[in-house]
């Protein structure tokens, strides 16, 4: 997977993970991938809702040891 930008939002509280992700996504072209890693427990539902509300797409979601990883394709 060719990930264009990585966003490290570990340790950040709501609403920062989404704010950081949005900023990073703004810099991408349509079709490019972004990976976001968070530790905030709410971010699982947050990122799902956020992706559903846009024309972006959740390519992968993984939870390992309290680390949430999301790979999102810009729409």
């Amino acid at each position: 997977m060719n990930i264009k930008v990585h966003v490290d939002a570990k340790g950040l509280a709501c609403p920062m993970p989404i704010v950081r992700a949005k900023k990073a996504l703004d810099g991408l072209e349509s079709g490019e991938l972004m990976e976001v890693v968070t530790t905030d427990k709410g971010s699982l539902n947050d990122f799902q809702a956020w992706v559903n509300q846009s024309n972006n797409e959740m390519v992968k979601q993984e939870t390992v040891d309290g680390l949430f990883t999301f790979v999102i394709r810009k729409g």
């Binding site: 989404i18 992700a21 956020w50 846009s54």
Partner: peptide, 11 residues
């Protein structure tokens, strides 16, 4: 302000 910042992140 948390809601406002969240909404801004929703574009």
């Amino acid at each position: 302000f948390i809601i406002a910042n969240g909404a801004a992140a929703y574009d």
